[in-house]
Amino acid sequence: MQRALTLTRSTVGMKALVAVTGLILFGFVIGHLAGNTLLFAGYETFNGYAASLKANPALLWGVRTVLLASVVTHIALTMKLAGRNSSARPTGYKKARQDQITTYAARTMVLSGPLLFAYILFHLAHFTVPGLDLGGEHDVVNVYGNVVRGFRVPWVAGIYIFANILLGLHLFHGAWSALQSLGANHPKYNPLRKRLAVGFALAVAGGNIFIPVAVLTRLVGTDEQVAASDLHPLGAPEPQDPPMPTE
């Protein structure tokens, strides 16, 4: 551990920590996406999944701690490196330097990163902070309903779509870059390395964007489904007697 801390003493070490934390966040995003696709399996499954996560506080808080530590480290180090890098050329070119092969994604990492952070704050507020209740009153158990109602608000869906484009960009460079930063390199697999990373970035961003799009187009979360989920978030109980009119 002590030695690992000395990593922060060199640009190479810091970048490796950025990569490790970036990959952890990447891993979470993939897992999160996998979980979120359950939305298409119906409200019962999705809400059941959400409930099962909360049923295990040790795991939940363990994951949350790792994520929080990763985000903090990731941000702190990227900002430190970015500061260092911009001061490495105190006087810039008077006639702009022409980029040859670097990508838009690579050049905008310091932008896409902080914007992602802002998005995460918004996202947390959206789902976990009580009272914001975008798109209608939130129900802690009916996460399905919350998601669908939220995404039915066009500007909310818009933010999600935009943020996930950013995420795609961030990962387009980040996923490959992390491997390079960690020295995972072999002449034979280097071309593969880049293609794999790009594939993952596209999959994650695409998958995430598909959800609000699907909600807006009613591919998922039709009015009936939402209504049903409100009634029985975790699925209708075994039919016993026909429900009695309540009036």
Partner: peptide, 21 residues
């Protein structure tokens, strides 16, 4: 690597512009 950092060069963020030049 330490000497490089102390000299005031920036860190690498894998732009590959160097290779192109």
């Amino acid at each position: 690597v330490s000497a490089h950092d102390e000299a005031g060069f920036g860190g690498c963020t894998n732009h590959k512009e160097c290779e192109a030049a």
